Simulated scan of single mutants.
Amino acid sequence: MTGRCDIALCIALFGSALLAGHASAEPLPLPDGLMVDLPEGWRVDGAAEGETGKDGRTRIQLVCETQACKRTQETCTILMRPQPVAGTDDAARLTSLYAAPMDRYFRIRAVLRSTSKDAQVLQPLGRVSLGPRDWWMIETDARHNYKSGLFAEAVIDGRYLGVICKTCETGSERHQAGRAIMASVRPAD
Rank of each mutant, 00 (worst) to 15 (best):
G50P: 13
R159W: 02
K117T: 15
E49K: 11
A152G: 06
R59T: 11
R186C: 01
R109E: 11
Q120E: 15
P31Q: 01
A177L: 06
D6F: 04
K166G: 01
V44M: 12
T140I: 07
L112Y: 09
E49V: 08
Y160A: 10
L38G: 12
V121A: 11
P82Y: 07
G53Q: 10
A23E: 11
I78Q: 02
P84Y: 02
S129F: 00
Y160T: 07
T115S: 11
G131I: 04
V44W: 12
G3F: 03
L13R: 12
S148L: 02
E139I: 02
I156S: 04
P84I: 05
V111L: 01
L34P: 07
M137D: 06
F106G: 02
I138A: 12
W136F: 04
E51I: 04
A47T: 12
C76R: 04
Q61G: 04
V44N: 13
G131L: 04
L122V: 00
A99Q: 15
Y105F: 12
K166I: 00
L79M: 08
P31E: 00
L18Y: 03
I138Q: 01
A152N: 01
G87D: 01
R143A: 11
G21E: 02
G56Q: 10
I181H: 08
D89R: 10
E169H: 13
S172Q: 02
E74V: 08
L150W: 05
P101K: 07
L28S: 01
R104T: 09
I11Y: 03
E49W: 05
D55W: 02
C64P: 07
W136E: 03
R43G: 09
R107F: 01
S96Q: 13
A142Y: 04
A119T: 06
M182N: 01
A154Q: 00
F151N: 03
S114D: 15
A180I: 03
D90K: 08
I60S: 07
R179G: 05
Q73D: 13
I7W: 14
W42E: 09
L28V: 03
L125K: 12
G53C: 01
Q83K: 14
G33W: 05
E74N: 09
D89Q: 07
V155Q: 06
P29W: 05
P187E: 07
D157P: 00
W136T: 00
R186K: 11
D45K: 14
G131S: 07
S16Y: 15
A188Q: 05
L94W: 01
S24M: 11
A91H: 09
T167P: 07
A188Y: 02
R143Y: 04
Y160N: 08
S148G: 13
V163N: 02
S96V: 10
E65Y: 09
E139Q: 15
H22F: 14
I78E: 03
G162S: 12
A180L: 06
L130K: 04
E139D: 14
G50W: 10
H175R: 00
G33H: 08
C69M: 03
D118E: 14
R113S: 13
L122P: 01
W135M: 00
A188E: 03
D55P: 00
A183Q: 02
L161M: 05
I164Q: 14
G15K: 08
A86S: 15
I181A: 10
